[in-house]
Design a protein around this nucleic acid. Structure first.
Length: 462
RNA sequence: GUCCCCUUCGUCUAGCGGCCUAGGACAUCACCCUUUCACGGUGAAGACACGGGUUCGAUUCCCGUAGGGGACGCCA
């Protein structure tokens, strides 16, 4: 059987971390099994869905590198089909009209709550004669769900779960205004799109029992189900916008690489022995549902950052140069570009994010007058500047401008002055980079080139 | 309140009855490397929620308890 999965976000906001992981798992599952990964925008809530949110979700998925097969489907365009299914169920006696008003139902729930009763629709119109329908009220259509027996879901992650049918009430299929509810729409769409495996957040687990009943009522085969545990915030509470959940684009803006994000998200709830660094190609080979854990995970930014640092170190220098230019919002001159690439190896092993990298890249982007920060300035006292002046003489006389010769020169200078190498190297670093922290200073000098290095030295040395 | 799910170091996890003196990773702390910071290396500290069973033997199976989470909409 050909595998078909789908990711079905509702466009009511950005794509958060939990949704991104669900999308990743679906994508990985499809790629592993050579199946299709479909994208369906669940925009049936016309009041809360926005085009901006749709764009944000699409952009985030694209950035993450999770490409979907075929054009994305919009649930709202299928309302007619959903309604037709509801009418079919009604005609078959598997659904019925209910004239209870929202206010009436709210009161019912209040009463149930007050009496300590389970809160659910009491079936007041299930067997009532439609002739008793009040005038002026449009009815909803509810599923006539079985009241005896139990419904079992064979979940690929959670295992077999059974719920008594007496726990499930008659859900609304079609609203009073004729629009379909989510419960109806997902089932119809999953069926029509040929979805074979549903992979979604565990918050949908209890919905599944209701959805299964719709599949049964229509006589449709049900897809496989896999409910992935939710991701919690660092405080253990539900990961919501209020609890610090950010959109995927926020992580991109924090300077994270999509491959690091994928690796991190993958390890949240899924494992392959002790493997931690799992490039996407490897993940496709290894991923399957049986290794998905059942307990919720907390989001840990430090681990994500550590992974990002790892991928940053292995990233292509040209790509990083482009990211730096984009981050700084400038186009880099050819010689700057060349310097950046030459110095990238030293830069990238010291950065955790692209932001760090763009900041550190100043060494190779600035001209002769690089602005020293406070710590660097503190290092450049009278004595240090005098020492740099004498060092400059030696450097200017150098025939070969490579790291070994530069280091030799610096060591000779330190010996001649009777100080440790650090007493020469640190002021040199401060003068050349404007910082107290940088890649190896002789490496920096080589990348800078004799002219620029000496020019910067001239600004501070005496 | 009702139903469902979950529970191994601070965090993510390995473990699918004996290989466990419970392994790895991130974070933390030492030390080494060293011109700074990183990288890298070595090492330390750190967990099976609790109580009953089952078994020759439980982290692993079963049942409770506690704690956490989720669902109970004419939202998705």
């Amino acid at each position: 059987m050909n595998v078909v999965v789908r990711f079905a976000p509702s466009p009511t906001g950005f794509l958060h971390i939990g949704g991104a992981r669900t999308a990743l798992f679906n994508w990985l599952y499809a790629r592993h099994h050579g199946g299709h990964f479909l994208l369906r925008i669940e925009d049936t809530d016309r009041t809360r869905s926005t085009p901006e949110a749709v764009k944000a979700i699409l952009d985030s998925l694209t950035w993450l590198g999770l490409d979907w097969d075929g054009p994305e489907a919009y649930q709202s365009t299928r309302a007619e089909r959903h309604a037709a299914v509801a009418r079919e169920l009604l005609a078959a006696g598997k659904a019925y009209r209910c004239w209870a008003t929202p206010d009436e139902l709210a009161a019912m729930r209040e009463a149930q709550k007050g009496a300590g009763q389970p809160v659910r629709y009491d079936g007041r119109w299930r067997d009532r004669d439609p002739a008793e329908a009040p005038a002026g009220i449009e009815p909803v259509i509810r599923l006539r769900a079985p009241r005896d027996g139990a419904t079992t879901v064979e979940d690929k992650v959670q295992g077999a779960i059974t719920v008594g049918n007496d726990q499930l009430d008659d859900m609304v299929l079609l609203r009073a205004d004729g629009t379909p509810t989510y419960m109806l729409a997902v089932v119809v769409d999953d069926h029509d799109m040929g979805v074979t495996q549903v992979i979604r957040g565990a918050d949908h687990l209890t919905n599944t029992f209701r959805q299964v009943q719709i599949f049964h009522a229509m006589g449709w085969p049900e897809p496989g189900f896999a409910h992935v545990p939710l991701i919690h915030g660092a405080d253990g509470a539900k990961f919501s916008k209020r609890h610090g959940a950010l959109g995927v684009e926020a992580y991109r803006d924090m300077g994270l690489l999509p491959e690091a994000m994928r690796n991190y998200l993958l390890r949240l709830g899924w494992s392959h022995g002790d493997e931690e660094i799992i490039p996407t190609e490897q993940a496709i080979l290894w991923f399957d549902l049986d290794a998905v854990g059942r307990s919720p995970a907390r989001f840990d930014i430090d681990k994500l950052l550590a992974l990002n640092a790892h991928y940053l170190r292995g990233a292509d220098d040209g790509r990083l140069a482009d990211l730096i230019a984009a981050r700084r919002g400038v186009a880099l001159a050819p010689d700057t570009q060349a310097r950046l690439r030459a110095g990238m190896a030293g830069l990238k092993q010291r950065a955790r994010t692209v932001i760090d990298l763009a900041e550190a890249a100043e060494v190779y982007i600035a001209g002769a007058a690089i602005a020293p920060d406070a710590k660097a300035r503190a290092l450049l006292d009278e004595e240090a500047r005098a020492r740099l002046g004498r060092l400059r003489q030696r450097l200017a006389a150098l025939g070969v401008w490579d790291a070994a010769s530069l280091e030799d020169t610096a060591r000779q200078a330190s010996e001649a002055e009777g100080v440790k190498l650090g007493a020469i190297a640190q002021p040199l670093r401060a003068a050349l980079t404007g910082r107290t922290v940088s890649p190896g200073i002789f490496e920096v000098m080589v990348v800078l080139g004799r002219d620029l290095a000496l020019a910067r030295l001239d600004v501070t040395a005496r």
